[in-house]
Design a protein around this nucleic acid. Structure first.
Length: 503
RNA sequence: GGUCCUAUCGUCUAGGGGUUAGGACAUCUCCCUUUCACGGAGGAAACAGGGGUUCAAUUCCCCUUAGGACUACCA
């Protein structure tokens, strides 16, 4: 397998969407599988959209999910810099090259003039108004203007952009790894701006130039880029880089869980589930976007969930660690259609990973959480608690709350259950049980159960009839793991105290 | 509107010219049980429609429909 060079190229305009994380993941998997290189490049050519903190967010999010970078703005690499803003001086020469070969031209139109053009074309019922081989002839550019005038304007410092001169009649083909051959006629393409008037390249020029310079072999990106891919192909051709053009793979989108459309920021807020890997505090608006991490999802579970959204191994396996993914992943098995984002499945994965988590690991987490509440328990006890609780919680963060009765004498009892279950029989059993336990020296679940068993039998009461009441007395709530185990962990002193409280 | 992409249970998906169309999540029933959960067993649940091609189409082709993306001096 030839080692690939792939890149994930986010723009630092806000928090990284979970779909972006998936894109990064697929890139990463291919890189690792082939023993290749994973590159991160910051696409910050739009200085007006720069959002402070976004870069750090991207870094942190990728680290959290377990994606490591071989080359990036933070790690450096042989093709540094990895921020397009820092590569600014590199782009103009390629624009000039295109200008010289007649594949690009200067355009001086103001935004007002562009608007006018659009309204004019719309009025003329042109189906798709755009700056192209026809309309460019009506505009202020180096194709329509005399050469010396262009020169004069340039020298006078008139603002200009450089546009790609898209050929009038040409079939542009692109062999997408996921979709196969896609053919677009150049007449449907517009003369994309390559260099903006602020001297920065647009995405189109920058990504082609950088991918070429960074020797990228595979461009794996979202489907939203498919429509502009033919423009990029044209660019490779005009720059003379056709033979080193990367292979393209346009990933299907992540869709809203209900209804239609692609997954957006708002969906998370409305549905009460995260659509971002980690929490993002929007400093401009003060809004907080919830993250998988903060919502209690384990990175392993999030990773597993994400990996299967649009890709599948072709087998019935579905628990995948990063290592397993790297081993199993192939671009061929990426699907073509968009996937609806189903948070239920994410929850299930989280539960699965929680069940696999060693009790000791879980106990360490519990200990830290309890410490915040000023509660300290011996670690052996915490491990036993976790063993009992691990299969009943969906999230790690539910643990402290679920474990309340292990460290806190009930201050109240579930009222409805109390009314239904607490009766004379229950009181009798509780009283006798307490008495029996007082003299028990071997305070273990088996013995504890043995006593209540004897008591109910002796009094002709079915154990099942009073167990709920006993649970209520001991924990205050109606649900939980095996009561005898709970009691054993709580210990004799506390148990007698709790029983004493109800009899 | 235009260009492009897509179409198997509610969801993620496997499959593929002849199958009882498979799995998982969710859902329902039952079992286990001191409760809840876990676990176990089972159920319901899909090839968007219409034309071709073919002995045979859910699978291949075309059209329709539906959905999606893009349509900026944003990425």
């Amino acid at each position: 397998m030839t080692p690939v060079r792939v890149r994930f190229a986010p723009s630092p305009t806000g928090p990284l969407h979970i779909g972006g994380v998936r894109t990064a993941l697929y890139n990463y998997l291919l890189a690792k599988k082939t023993g290749g290189t994973m590159i991160l490049r910051i696409e910050d050519t739009d200085q007006t959209r720069f959002v402070p903190g976004a870069e750090e967010y991207i870094k942190e999010a990728l680290e959290w999910i377990g994606i490591t970078l071989d080359e990036s703005p933070w790690h450096g690499g042989p093709h540094a810099p990895y921020r397009q803003s820092e590569r600014k001086p590199m782009y103009m020469q390629y624009a000039m090259q295109l200008l010289e070969s007649g594949n690009a031209y200067y355009a001086f139109d103001t935004s007002e003039e562009l608007d006018e053009m659009r309204t004019r074309l719309e009025a003329a019922k042109v189906p798709d108004p755009k700056y192209n081989s026809i309309s460019r002839m009506e505009m202020k550019n180096s194709i329509t203007m005399p050469e010396d005038e262009v020169k004069a304007w340039l020298e006078a410092g008139k603002p200009y952009v450089i546009r790609l001169k898209v050929p009038r009649k040409e079939e542009v083909r692109i062999n997408d790894l996921i979709r196969g051959w896609v053919m677009v006629h150049s007449s449907t393409l517009d003369d994309k701006v390559l260099m903006k008037s602020d001297g920065m390249p647009t995405y189109h020029l920058a990504n082609v130039v950088d991918d070429y310079l960074m020797k990228i072999t595979h461009v794996i990106r979202g489907e939203e880029w498919l429509p502009s891919a033919p423009t990029h192909v044209l660019l490779y051709k005009f720059l003379g880089w056709e033979t080193s053009m990367p292979q393209f793979a346009h990933l299907p989108l992540l869709l809203k869980p209900d209804g239609n459309g692609k997954l957006s920021k708002r969906d998370g807020d409305m549905g009460g589930y995260p659509v971002f890997p980690i929490e993002w505090n929007d400093k401009a608006t003060g809004a907080v976007f919830m993250g998988f991490r903060e919502s209690g999802y384990l990175p392993e579970a999030t990773l597993n969930f994400l990996s299967l959204l649009g890709w599948n191994p072709g087998t019935q396996e579905e628990i995948f660690s990063m290592e397993k993914l790297i081993e199993t992943f192939t671009v061929e098995r990426i699907g073509k259609s968009g996937s609806k984002f189903d948070i239920q499945k994410a929850k299930w994965f989280n539960q699965e990973y929680l069940k696999m988590m060693p009790n000791e690991t879980m106990a360490a987490f519990l200990a830290a959480e309890l410490k915040k509440k000023g509660v300290e328990l011996e670690s052996s006890k915490l491990v036993r608690i976790c063993a009992l609780l691990k299969e009943r919680v969906m999230f790690l963060k539910d643990l402290p709350n679920e474990a309340t009765y292990f460290y806190q004498t009930p201050t109240s009892y579930d009222a409805e259950l109390w009314a239904a279950k607490w009766n004379d029989e229950a009181k009798l059993v509780a009283t006798e049980w307490k008495k029996a336990l007082e003299t028990e020296t071997n305070f273990v679940a088996e013995q504890i159960k043995h006593h209540i068993h004897d008591i109910t039998e002796k009094n002709g009461i079915k154990m099942g009839k009073v167990m709920q009441a006993m649970r209520l007395a001991m924990t205050g709530v109606g649900a939980g793991p095996d009561l005898m185990q709970i009691i054993e962990i709580i210990g004799k002193v506390e148990t007698l105290k709790r029983l004493g409280n109800v009899v």
